[in-house]
Design a protein around this nucleic acid. Structure first.
Lengths: 232, 232
DNA sequence: GAGTGGTCTAGACCACTCA
DNA sequence: GAGTGGTCTAGACCACTCC
């Protein structure tokens, strides 16, 4: 016999059920931790953990003194795995291939410097490469790396290992920003992804920082067959 | 002076710093909870909470008996807020406008039934509407609602309140799936969003369930100026 | 001031897994 | 069998907020 003891999971799921089945309507003030602890025969800390999880999921709103309410406008959030391209492709049962297109230190365009909050005209490492799944172009990666933060990158050999994989092992990040958008393929992107210029592409942009220092900006372009899926 | 006492935040941030600054390299076995508790002068439960947060963030890997290691391939995940269209638009300081285009019960196309795991030919409520920001088209919403699960929807008046807002208050969901992609605008979408047919659009697709029953499928189309941003 | 949630402690037992 | 993390308890004090 397991799980008959009041655990924070049991409590969380039971409260979640009451909300889902509208026993407690949105806006309702639910009993305090002490009361619930008594009801479930558990310690207050256990009830607290259950309530905190539900609050973080956005279906409860908690305020000191005011108590805990069923969220009126549940701010639900979803998570998505930050994809590591090789795993993503191999995870779908496809073969992963990689092709380095170019790699050179260069003066970064103003747009790039601005996105990274760097002085205009900063010299960055510019890496362009292509990721393929079963020999079909899957993602075109256009990346700028800040050698001030990752000096080793200048000596790194990106001909076999992609910059993403390399960075994972050499430059941890503390903060990241992701942007997703749709765009029209440029002539270059179209050629590399084997689509037509102007065709829709799915673009992911990723900027990472170590503390306040920008590490890298990656511009990741997928053909429009790409799907980004996440569950809640 | 606040926060000098060992709190789970202090501990979490200090451990996070050690990992970020490569004091502990990926793969390293870090000290056990007991040891860390001693080091920080805290209770084991406090250290445990700090470690659990880092493990959930994907930068630590924990196994009973084996101990806690710095993740070799950090499976980092990002969260994004499931946008409520009105808040999204008003949050950017724009005025929100809403226009209902059509609302009728109809036999759903096979693709829709398949996506919802319903019998082909099921009758669903079909709602089409447009969301505008400062009078500029922001999102075209094409939604199918399952009246078997939400019978009230058939009587609902969607001329003032969008189906999303209505559903939030009337049909909680237990599971959701989100898909994001790029596509070319159809003639209808182009007309509504004031772009040209074939222009790239950013599409979000959202399916929600209550337990095993599909509630609704929403197809949300944005012009390519749209950005979906999330931070980590 | 008083009531609620937020957190910490010290101790305990359990579950899992490696040796 | 033994060592590690996972969880629970009972009690305590604190922080915030409403009155």
């Amino acid at each position: 016999m397991t799980g008959e003891r009041a655990s924070f999971r049991t409590i969380r799921d039971e409260l979640s059920r009451r909300i889902a089945e509208r026993v407690w309507l949105p806006g309702t003030l639910i009993p305090g931790e002490e009361t619930l602890a008594e009801e479930f025969g558990a310690a207050r800390a256990t009830v607290n953990r259950a309530l905190q999880e539900l609050a973080r999921a956005g279906i409860l709103e908690r305020r000191r003194r005011a108590g805990t309410r069923v969220a009126l406008h549940p701010v639900r959030e979803a998570r998505f795995i930050i994809p590591r391209i090789r795993q993503e492709i191999e995870g779908r049962g496809s073969d992963y291939q990689y092709r380095l297109l170019s790699c050179e230190e260069a003066k970064a365009p103003e747009v790039i410097c601005a996105r990274l909050s760097l002085q205009p005209g900063s010299r960055l490492l510019h890496v362009r490469c292509l990721h393929l799944a079963d020999r079909v172009p899957y993602q075109f990666e256009d990346r700028w790396i800040n050698p001030k933060v990752v000096p080793d990158a200048l000596q790194a050999d990106f001909s076999q290992v992609g910059p993403n994989e390399w960075l994972v092992g050499h430059a941890p990040f503390s903060t990241a920003e992701f942007t997703f958008m749709a765009a029209a393929a440029s002539a270059e992107e179209a050629g590399l992804l084997q689509i037509r210029e102007g065709d829709p592409v799915f673009v992911g942009e990723r900027i990472t920082w170590m503390r306040a220092d920008p590490i890298t900006l990656a511009h990741l372009v997928h053909p429009s067959s790409h799907r980004m899926v996440t569950q809640l």
